[in-house]
């Protein structure tokens, strides 16, 4: 995804000289050719995430379209107030592009895990939240949103899915719509696991790459069904629950730190977000049937 990010930004920057990159000493070598081509528009500013965001806000005030980029927890969780005050409240809009989604840095431990970013950012007014799941979604969504004078968050992952879907900002996609009483809703790269888990099951399957604004119209279509949100982050579940009087449950992150090392697959397995774990959860919901309200309780605690 990061390579796609670079390819897209290279192309956009050739057409729009208002694009300026503000990097926090990450992905710098990947962008060497950008720096060579546009030395006055590439700033590896240092490991100072708060200031990266403030500086980007200042560049925006001068009419530029800044793209701030570094590792997700440091940019979002550490710099939340700069995003809130300097970009959103001041309306000095910028583009925030992170690497290191959820467990992309599984081996580095909990300081490098990031699964709250979508949830906390969607609470800020005037901010768009995008979780591209595929390279195509990175390309289409960056191009469509970078210059709209709203702060937009793009959460990149090193583990994209390769499912080719129509991409339009703010629009979800119904991948399976077969009249089932159970609708699985998901977002971002974990779609690969969800699709593998549900391929032959009698469920509807709805996918989002835009968390805010959420596609309320699409969700409303499945109001009469039970909804199971399967997501390797917080944010989608809360967005779906904003629509009143739905029956929604969540299968994803536990309320505890995931203190295991290894690969992303290992951590997903531990919290039942591997295809087998997801399938097991969906089968449990299907077995419960619509009358069993207990099915709507949180699905799993790995402790």
């Amino acid at each position: 995804m990061r390579k796609q990010f670079k390819a897209t930004v290279m192309d956009m920057a050739a057409r729009d000289d208002r694009i300026v990159l503000v990097f926090g000493d990450i992905s710098v070598y990947l962008f060497n050719d950008f720096r060579e081509k546009h030395p006055d528009r590439f700033f590896n500013m240092g490991i100072c995430e708060n200031t990266l965001v403030s500086v980007a806000a200042g560049l925006s005030a001068q009419g530029f379209f800044p793209i701030v980029h570094t590792i997700a927890p440091f940019l979002v969780e550490r710099s939340y107030e700069q995003i809130k005050d300097d970009m959103c409240y001041n309306r000095f809009a910028g583009n925030i592009v992170t690497a290191g989604a959820t467990f992309d840095y599984a081996w580095d431990g909990a300081t490098h895990h990031c699964y709250s970013d979508l949830a906390i950012l969607r609470l800020l007014p005037d901010l768009e939240v995008v979780q591209p799941g595929s390279k195509k979604e990175v390309d289409v969504l960056l191009r469509s949103q970078y210059n709209n004078r709203k702060t937009t968050y793009f959460r990149l992952s090193d583990h994209p899915h390769d499912i080719d879907l129509p991409v339009q900002f703010g629009k979800g996609v119904a991948l399976k719509e077969n009249g089932s009483d159970l609708t699985v809703m998901t977002a971002g790269p974990i779609l690969g696991n969800v699709l593998e888990a549900c391929r032959d099951l009698d469920v509807n399957l709805v996918y989002f790459h835009t968390i805010k604004p959420i596609d309320r119209e699409l969700i409303e279509k499945f109001r009469h069904t039970r909804i199971l949100v399967v997501h390797d982050a917080f944010g989608l579940h809360e967005a779906v629950c904003e629509i009143q009087n739905l029956s929604v449950s969540y299968h994803g992150l536990p309320d505890q730190f995931c203190v295991w090392y290894g690969r992303v697959q290992d951590l997903r397995r531990m919290i039942r977000l591997d295809p087998a774990g997801i399938r097991e959860c969906v089968l449990e919901k299907l077995a419960c049937g619509s009358a069993d309200r207990a099915c709507l309780a949180p699905s799993h605690d790995p402790a």
Binding site: V20, D40, R41, F43, N50, T51, V53, S54, V55, A56, A57, G58, L59, S60, A61, Q62, G63, F64, P66, E81, Q82, D85, D86, Y89, N90, F92
Partner: peptide
């Protein structure tokens, strides 16, 4: 718009950089 301390200076740096560009 300021209030939370330590913000205006960083935004000012970005503005100064933008003016240079």
């Amino acid at each position: 718009s300021t209030g939370s301390l330590g913000h205006g200076i960083g935004v000012g740096v970005g503005m100064a950089l933008g003016l240079k560009l």
